[in-house]
Structures are given as C-alpha cells and as structure tokens.
C-alpha cells in the first residue's frame, strides 16, 4: 500500500524546535512501522531512531505513533494507517528528545534504582516454588523496559511506573527477604496504584497484568 509517514525531526546542533519530514513509500499492510522507519532511513540516512530485536522483546523502538506511545516493531501498517491520514511518528512524550526519535533514557533507567530492583534472597529459601506462584511472577517479568508506561502515566507518586512494575514483581516473589514489605517503601497512594494496575494491561505493549489483590 502507498503510505506517507510524517516523522519528527530534531537536530540539537541546528534546530531550535522540532519539525516534521514526510516520507512516501510502498509497504504491505502486514509490515510494521519499524519497517517504514527503516525505509525512511534509506531515503534520508541522517534520520535517527533506535531498534534492535524487531520482535517486540527488547524495548528499543518505543515511539509515539499517531499520538499514542507504542512499539514501532509491534505496530502493523494497517493498524497505524486505519484512520486514513498520514502516519505520524514522534518521540516518546515525557522524555527529553535528543535527536529525531531518540530520547534520553538515562533518567528512565536511573528511576529503577529507587526500588532496590533486585532480589534480596531470603536465608531460608529452599529452592522450591509452586507453579502457580511462578506463573504469577511471569507476567511482570516480561517487562521489556520500553518506557511506554512512563510516557503514559503522569502520576504514580515518587516511584515511576516501570520501577513500580519491577517492585511489584519482587514484592510477590517468595524468595525475596523484603517481599510484601516492599509495598510500604513505595509510598504510592492506594487509589493511584489501583488505577495504575487497572490501566496497565491496556497501555503496556506486553499487556502486563499484575494481580491487584496481592499488592494492595
């Protein structure tokens, strides 16, 4: 299908405000917005955007597509062009734009540190875990640290959304010495946490669900 994508351009050495550049191309509807960006890049090699796995598992290609944060490699062209107009690709909101679609990830990765983001092994852990508990941990363990939740949720208290997901996984881990006590450290107001858990599955590209009854 003939498509036009409008990509946000910003070169800090040259521009004071971002602009848009249009690229016309011919793609299958079953190809992805990442494929479109790669074609745009061939037309203008100075375009910058991150990518790695192209299969929605590394979290590199989070951008804003037609106003909504999404993974470029997970968004099919037929979805992105369903509204009829050109496909608009911008950097993730709430992140500092460094160049074109590339944003500053340092504060994002730093934000994880607020929750002691590693397992603190209990002394008496005997190496066993029930399949049910393991399955419950699996959901949040699929987080790819793409940053989309941080771009989607404005207010989750002093702990940022992706860090919250990590903390909630560890809080439910029977191997963790702090375990459920981690929740107190979060200081996230219960109403906000509830809303976050309710909306996360729909906003997160991995559809992560966390059992609220175990966290509140």
């Amino acid at each position: 299908m003939e498509t036009v994508i409008k990509v946000c351009r910003f070169d800090p050495g040259k521009d004071t405000v971002p602009t848009f550049q249009e690229f016309a191309m011919d793609l299958e509807g079953t190809q992805t917005v990442l494929d479109a960006l790669l074609l745009a890049w061939q037309q203008d090699p100075s375009l910058s955007f991150r990518r790695s796995c192209r299969s929605a598992i590394c979290g590199s290609c989070a951008v804003r597509i037609n106003g909504r944060p999404a993974l470029a490699c997970q968004t099919l062209m037929q979805q992105a062009s369903a509204h009829g107009g050109p496909i608009i690709v911008e950097p993730l909101p709430h992140f500092r734009q460094l160049k074109d679609l590339v944003v500053d990830l340092e504060p994002f990765f730093d934000s994880l540190k607020a929750v002691v983001p590693w397992l603190v092994l209990r002394d008496d852990y005997d190496g066993r875990m029930t399949p049910e508990v393991a399955r419950r941990l699996e959901g949040p363990a699929t987080c790819i640290l793409c940053g989309i939740c941080d771009a989607e949720f404005d207010e989750t208290g002093h702990v940022k959304p992706a860090a919250l997901v990590k903390a909630l996984r560890l809080a439910q881990d029977p191997r963790d010495a702090a375990g459920i006590h981690r929740l107190r450290l979060l200081q996230t107001p219960p109403e906000i946490l509830k809303l976050f858990l309710k909306e996360l599955p729909e906003k997160c590209p991995k559809g992560i669900t966390i059992d609220a009854s175990k966290c509140l």
Partner: peptide, 14 residues
C-alpha cells in the same frame, strides 16, 4: 535461580 530468575516450575516446585 538465586539471583531471581523465574524458572517455570514442576508441580513439586522443582
């Protein structure tokens, strides 16, 4: 596993 990997489990917990 002691570092925190969530291996899939058997019914007996192994």
């Amino acid at each position: 596993e002691r570092m925190g990997v969530t291996w899939t489990r058997r019914a007996d917990g192994g």
